[in-house]
Write a protein that binds this DNA or RNA. Structure first.
Length: 159
DNA sequence: GCCAACGTTGGC
DNA sequence: GCCAACGTTGGC
């Protein structure tokens, strides 16, 4: 029985890994490593599944906002970097038999002609409950409703 | 670059 | 188990 597709928002700092970097990556795919927050980890491990749609959000660097769309191409699996001593994401306390951190694979799907800026998201009545517009929302992987997802697509198309 | 808000750590 | 101190995030 097919599970209903779900929607998410992934934050990234574009000077670290932008949506263009994702588009240029081999097979336009990367693994979303380095999430070291338990709430986000739980989503990656338990809830985010292959086929889910993702709003690709650029934080910190102007223009801040949703830059495009990506798709989850592999469901949650243990983040290999936690066991890599050369990685800055290594976590020596994580046990390979019971990994602490998870990642998913993300594939580029679409880059908007223009970033939909955070300021516009904040002004849209349909998005008033969206997590990313709330003050102090730091979760790097956030659930998004279908209604919110569609509203962002519409705003991107209207720009 | 600043700094407020947040999550995590660690002493007690 | 509390909570102060600390490190990080992220909008501005």
């Amino acid at each position: 029985m097919a599970r209903a597709k779900q929607y998410w928002l992934f934050k990234s700092e574009p000077d670290v890994f932008s949506i263009d970097d994702l588009k240029k990556a081999p097979k336009k795919t990367t693994y979303w490593e380095g999430v070291r927050n338990y709430q986000a980890r739980n989503l990656l491990r338990d809830d985010i599944k292959k086929g889910d749609a993702v709003l690709y959000y650029h934080s910190r660097v102007q223009p801040i906002g949703v830059a495009g769309i990506a798709r989850v191409s592999k469901s949650g699996y243990p983040d290999p970097e936690q066991f890599d001593p050369t990685s800055k994401y290594q976590d020596a306390k994580s046990n390979p038999d019971d990994p602490r951190w998870y990642c998913v694979d993300l594939t580029w799907e679409k880059t908007f002609a223009e970033v939909v800026p955070l300021a516009d998201l904040k002004e849209a009545p349909a998005l008033k409950d969206m997590m990313v517009v709330q003050r102090g929302a730091r979760l790097s992987v956030q659930p998004v409703t279908k209604k919110e997802f569609d509203a962002v697509l519409k705003m991107a198309a209207a720009r």
